[in-house]
Nucleic acid binder design. Structure first.
Lengths: 253, 253
DNA sequence: GGTTGCTTGATACGACTGTATCAATGATGC
DNA sequence: GCATCATTGATACAGTCGTATCAAGCAACC
């Protein structure tokens, strides 16, 4: 297999400590390696146009977060399609189109990867939800806003469907992983309060408690979405149920 | 290690085919093995009192289902405490106090084990729920019956807490495992209909749709129970919310 | 006595997992 | 030319996983 590498340093001579662990050596010393590098750099000619300007300092940090995000997206994709237990380091690396070592380097351990991916997922979901809210026709129609907030938890399209699957998978993990539970508890508190506020502003029916209504509404829509996920209910049925309850809570349509 | 076993058959002589796979042989043939067995049986003396009566034919089947159940319980326990991904064949065997081979023999494969354990879990939960319903003070108090049905999905005690954890873990698995999804879909349909029927009988407030109320109630109480599981809500808060909605739906307390 | 059947014990295999180790690659500053 | 830095490539290791294989245990029938 490795015929020519068995002899010695590619630049000078032959020491080449034969370490059995890790990547097999090709040079006898760092300086010989530098020599070889400069030779290659010279043969490649000068870089296209802006060699001295170099990359601005922000580029490093940006490239880093982009890579982390790219890897996290692979975690989401695998978790949505085949479950979190299929998201091994190697599968994630392959899904992101990077090497195993890169995943190790950027997240330290598998646990770190899972926690970071959940963090990024929460941010991403918030971003998307806000974008959809901003795209509403009439932001003054509070009932429509309320419906949009609740619809965010239903598998209406492939994106939300995947998000819900990943969310549920992570939830189950969090039951036996305190670090993941932490992320859940510190992230998604204000949903019920938002819904309760909307109900209050939109004019709830007399005698209704917006807070209690919001509690059942949010947890209920999540449960209904889970039912849709594995085919126990149809999406149309869930939307009808939801409409019924919105009509009930906000009679002044 | 195996000093004396290297020579030959314990009864007659020496052939002893040296198979490298599986359990190392000790006898040269089945008949020699039978001889050794009969010798041991003779030395042990006659069994206590009822040797010829033998075991009735049903004992076999009963012993089998008992063993299956014992192993399934180990699956539930592990899944509740450390998640379904911790339920390896070896862990389950250890938890049930049997050998790995016994788990293999009675369930064929890990997938078969998981599916059977889920089946048995559904039966067990039904049994326990019915028992709790039968123990109600006044079976005519329909509101109390309704409350008991819904409370079955809340982690009120260690048993229900574990059941909910296992249930959720299995649900997530079922999203990527059709055989498990099958068990879910064919088992737990009538809950909402039961709740709707109770609401109807108990006298719902005018203008309310018992079916839609039941849908949100059941899915909502499941979601609230999940919130309790990882500490996002307190049990008292959930019960208050539930009481509020029961009062709303059934005003004629 | 020998044979057959169901059940269990005692290994073994190959695949995969998370992680660790060592070196090469570029780039920058001296 | 040399040292140093963050990043990536190329392995290797120890362990666990599900499963397969062969034989022993035990009871029943012939």
């Amino acid at each position: 297999m490795r015929d020519e590498n068995l002899v010695g340093c590619r630049v000078c001579g032959a020491p080449l400590a034969t370490a059995v662990r890790g990547r097999p050596p090709v040079y006898c010393s760092r300086s010989c390696q530098a020599k070889a590098y400069r030779r290659r750099a010279g043969a490649r000619g000068r870089p296209a146009a802006a060699p001295p300007a170099a990359a601005e300092p922000a580029a490093h940090a940006e490239g880093r977060s982009r890579r982390r995000r790219q890897i996290a997206e692979a975690v989401w994709k695998i978790a949505a399609e085949r479950g979190l237990e299929a998201a091994s380091m190697r599968e994630v690396a392959a899904g992101a189109g990077v090497s195993l070592r890169v995943v190790q380097y950027h997240f330290g351990s598998k646990h770190g990867l899972l926690v970071s991916a959940l963090h990024l997922l929460h941010e991403e979901n918030d971003r998307r939800a806000r974008a959809r809210m901003a795209a509403l026709d009439d932001p003054e129609d509070l009932r429509a806003v309320l419906g949009a907030v609740l619809n965010e938890f239903l598998p209406l399209d492939e994106q939300r469907r995947g998000a819900l699957r990943v969310f549920v998978a992570y939830y189950v993990r969090s039951l036996t992983d305190p670090a993941l539970a932490e992320v859940f508890l510190h992230a998604s508190q204000p949903v019920e309060q938002l819904v309760a506020g909307l109900i209050r502003q939109a004019g709830a029916a007399p005698g209704t408690d917006p807070g209690r209504e919001a509690d059942l509404l949010v947890s209920g829509v999540t449960g209904l979405g889970m039912d849709v996920l594995h085919g126990r209910r149809t999406l149309a049925d869930v939307r009808t149920t939801l409409d019924y309850h919105l009509d009930r809570i906000l009679p002044a349509h």
